Lab assay of single mutants.
Amino acid sequence: MQRVNMIMAESPGLITICLLGYLLSAECTVFLDHENANKILNRPKRYNSGKLEEFVQGNLERECMEEKCSFEEAREVFENTERTTEFWKQYVDGDQCESNPCLNGGSCKDDINSYECWCPFGFEGKNCELDVTCNIKNGRCEQFCKNSADNKVVCSCTEGYRLAENQKSCEPAVPFPCGRVSVSQTSKLTRAETVFPDVDYVNSTEAETILDNITQSTQSFNDFTRVVGGEDAKPGQFPWQVVLNGKVDAFCGGSIVNEKWIVTAAHCVETGVKITVVAGEHNIEETEHTEQKRNVIRIIPHHNYNAAINKYNHDIALLELDEPLVLNSYVTPICIADKEYTNIFLKFGSGYVSGWGRVFHKGRSALVLQYLRVPLVDRATCLRSTKFTIYNNMFCAGFHEGGRDSCQGDSGGPHVTEVEGTSFLTGIISWGEECAMKGKYGIYTKVSRYVNWIKEKTKLT
């Protein structure tokens, strides 16, 4: 034993070699072989497995989906700052455009905790909710729209109204504003409101030439003092309507412009014939205590009207009353817009006519005020429907199939267009061939041609 100890002390290297040989010859039971080890760690190889990531292109799944990435790591994937920024906006807080917040056709661009709407022409605001041009839906104005110097929408209202708090709607500024039905039992019968379409306001006024200088022999019209197929109006439903009495009662109609003036057809009036105007009328054979009678003290036909040349060209006249009318729910003026808007309103496509005229061709006159909704007829169809001249200051309205029309005794009465609950004068009943005849239409004086003249002559002093 002493000898062994001496050998170990003198030859430590020998001992180490012996131990190493023993270990190498022993069977290893701690580690699995290569094949079995792979069965336990069965993990798919990654895209760049075996390579240094710093030297390969980034992978979106590896960089940002398996674990949260930084902007720089995302930049490695896209290799483009702009594309990385677009991805980053949604990656950080989701897609803010998912709810489609942009209105009126706006395009949404996502941002971090926010979004941006790219608005089409005519709109602005956070969600493109603000109209900035009158060309689109009248700028959301209830009545009139004008573009300011910086191309912003400025709404306005006709006389007797003021802008509401929203700067879009119009509200009454006087007790009985024009064009409004205020009798409670008839307010439910107000005709369907007309909503502004998209309009090209630059070209809204037709490029028409008034044929002022045409000389033409007097034409022989049949029954051209021209509501057939209409309905009984309720008291106060058309408070701007008046009836004219002269040699015979209810020979023509008219509309209240203001307390002192009536507008009617020029062919209705004769110099030297006494005319009485009755406002607030409903049943011409009954006294309903809503009527107001006034005498006409002055007749002003349009300066281009000449019955000797043509009885229905420039067929418009103004009547001055001896005493002002007292405005109330049964006696209310009709609204008159400017030339541009009167023309736009007419193009809405349908209007209402009213009167006490004959209820059928050569038949009896109506006792109760009649009204009828009539569609506008395109000019080409209008011209083809008659052998008589249709001037540019006239328009056609009615039904091709016949059966409904204005008729004798309705002449001078109103053709009105309702705009968001307020009625505007767009025409004056003038003439036609018979009444409600198939293929024939009622012919009306186009008020847009005469609004400046009306307003100039009827100013209240």
Score class of each variant (00 low, 15 high):
2 Q>D: 07
3 R>W: 11
4 V>F: 14
6 M>S: 11
7 I>S: 07
9 A>D: 05
10 E>K: 15
11 S>Q: 06
15 I>M: 10
15 I>K: 07
16 T>D: 03
16 T>L: 14
17 I>Y: 12
17 I>N: 02
20 L>C: 06
21 G>V: 15
22 Y>S: 10
24 L>K: 03
26 A>C: 14
27 E>L: 03
27 E>H: 08
32 L>C: 05
34 H>W: 08
39 K>S: 12
39 K>V: 05
41 L>A: 15
42 N>G: 05
42 N>D: 15
44 P>Q: 09
46 R>I: 10
46 R>A: 13
48 N>G: 05
48 N>C: 04
50 G>P: 10
51 K>P: 14
52 L>N: 15
59 N>Q: 13
60 L>C: 04
62 R>C: 04
65 M>E: 13
69 C>V: 04
70 S>W: 04
72 E>D: 15
72 E>Y: 06
73 E>Y: 07
77 V>C: 06
78 F>S: 15
78 F>W: 10
80 N>Q: 10
80 N>G: 13
81 T>G: 11
82 E>W: 04
84 T>P: 14
85 T>W: 06
85 T>L: 08
85 T>I: 07
87 F>K: 15
89 K>Y: 06
93 D>L: 08
94 G>A: 12
96 Q>G: 15
97 C>Q: 00
101 P>R: 03
101 P>L: 03
105 G>C: 01
105 G>N: 05
106 G>I: 00
107 S>V: 07
109 K>R: 14
110 D>F: 05
111 D>K: 03
112 I>D: 12
114 S>F: 04
116 E>T: 03
116 E>K: 02
120 P>C: 02
123 F>W: 14
124 E>R: 03
128 C>E: 01
128 C>A: 00
128 C>H: 00
128 C>T: 01
129 E>L: 02
129 E>S: 02
130 L>D: 11
133 T>R: 09
134 C>P: 03
135 N>G: 14
140 R>C: 04
141 C>E: 01
141 C>W: 00
147 N>T: 15
147 N>D: 09
148 S>T: 13
153 V>H: 11
154 V>F: 13
154 V>Y: 12
160 G>K: 02
168 K>Q: 11
168 K>D: 03
169 S>H: 06
170 C>F: 01
175 P>Y: 05
175 P>L: 08
175 P>F: 04
182 S>T: 14
183 V>Q: 13
187 S>N: 05
188 K>A: 12
190 T>W: 12
190 T>G: 12
193 E>L: 12
195 V>S: 15
198 D>K: 10
199 V>W: 12
202 V>H: 08
204 S>Y: 12
209 T>C: 06
213 N>I: 07
216 Q>S: 14
217 S>H: 07
217 S>L: 05
218 T>C: 05
222 N>H: 05
224 F>C: 05
226 R>K: 09
226 R>W: 06
227 V>W: 12
231 E>M: 12
232 D>G: 05
233 A>G: 07
235 P>N: 05
236 G>M: 06
237 Q>M: 09
237 Q>G: 09
238 F>K: 04
240 W>K: 01
245 N>T: 10
246 G>C: 03
247 K>V: 14
248 V>Y: 12
250 A>M: 06
252 C>Q: 00
256 I>P: 01
258 N>A: 04
261 W>R: 00
262 I>P: 00
262 I>Y: 00
264 T>I: 03
267 H>Q: 06
267 H>P: 00
269 V>C: 10
272 G>N: 11
279 A>P: 00
283 N>E: 07
283 N>P: 04
288 E>R: 06
289 H>I: 08
294 R>D: 01
296 V>K: 01
297 I>E: 05
299 I>K: 07
299 I>A: 06
300 I>E: 05
302 H>E: 02
307 A>H: 10
308 A>S: 14
311 K>E: 05
313 N>S: 09
315 D>N: 09
316 I>C: 02
318 L>A: 03
319 L>T: 02
320 E>D: 00
321 L>V: 05
322 D>C: 02
322 D>K: 03
324 P>G: 04
329 S>L: 04
329 S>F: 04
337 A>I: 01
339 K>R: 15
339 K>M: 15
339 K>F: 09
342 T>E: 04
346 L>T: 07
347 K>T: 11
347 K>L: 07
348 F>H: 08
350 S>H: 12
352 Y>Q: 03
355 G>C: 08
359 V>S: 14
362 K>V: 05
363 G>D: 08
363 G>V: 06
363 G>C: 04
364 R>V: 10
370 Q>D: 03
375 P>S: 14
381 T>F: 12
383 L>Q: 15
383 L>V: 08
384 R>G: 10
384 R>H: 10
384 R>F: 04
385 S>F: 15
387 K>Y: 05
388 F>H: 14
388 F>R: 09
390 I>W: 08
390 I>P: 10
391 Y>V: 05
391 Y>K: 15
396 C>Y: 01
398 G>T: 03
399 F>V: 14
402 G>A: 15
402 G>R: 12
404 R>V: 07
406 S>L: 14
406 S>Y: 13
409 G>C: 12
410 D>Y: 08
411 S>R: 14
412 G>K: 03
413 G>R: 03
414 P>E: 03
415 H>W: 02
418 E>Y: 10
419 V>L: 07
422 T>W: 01
422 T>Q: 03
425 L>T: 00
425 L>R: 00
425 L>E: 00
426 T>K: 00
428 I>P: 00
429 I>R: 15
430 S>W: 03
431 W>Y: 13
434 E>N: 13
436 A>C: 07
436 A>G: 13
437 M>C: 08
443 I>E: 02
447 V>T: 06
448 S>Q: 05
448 S>K: 02
449 R>D: 09
450 Y>D: 02
452 N>L: 05
452 N>V: 05
454 I>N: 01
456 E>N: 11
457 K>I: 14
460 L>G: 06
460 L>V: 04
